[in-house]
Amino acid sequence: MELTATTTVRRPVAEVYAFWRLLENLPTFMEHLDEVRTTDEKTSTWTASAPFDRTVVWEALVIEDVVEERIAWRSTEQADVPNEGAVSFLPAPAGAGTEVHVHLVYDVEAGKLGKAVAKYFGEEPHQQLDDDLRRLKQVLEAGEVVRSDGAPWGKQARKEFPQHPAQPMTAEERREVLGA
């Protein structure tokens, strides 16, 4: 499964590149990622929520890193769902910010979780990546992922349909959502 998506972030290329290069930041806007921990300059451990409340963990390797231009990575051999990705950063016309072009490949034929993952992405696998990039924009431009009463979950908004009514949450619901 191959996904591409593009957005324009109204921040300088250096800032957008630096934010992405610190892989720990990815879970702030990528819905399926729970955590990324870098182990050294090139290697990192990624944790993602999978269907049926399962968690998948894999090691990834940065295979290309051109400062303020492009970052590419791929999972190492043991991954349940072999995957690779690349992101390019281009200055938008007339200094209007940074174009972020993302390309992800999931090998859903190989690995034991492939089919479940394909199902998880559903009929419109693009939607999730599009939403991820929208949240990247929110974080870099507006400071955080925006929550509403109807979609209070931040980056997990898509999970909630029908949504919470557009009325304030009870204290209990708030504790569950905000984890505080």
Binding site: T8, R10, A96, G97, R134, K137, Q138, E141, A142, V145, V146, R147, S148, G150, A151, G154, A157, Q163
Partner: peptide, 18 residues
């Protein structure tokens, strides 16, 4: 965002979680 910078506030790119 770019819409707000152009004063097109009702087209804000970041304020709609849906």
């Amino acid at each position: 965002c770019a819409a707000c910078a152009a004063q097109l506030y009702s087209c804000c790119e970041n304020s709609n979680p849906n």
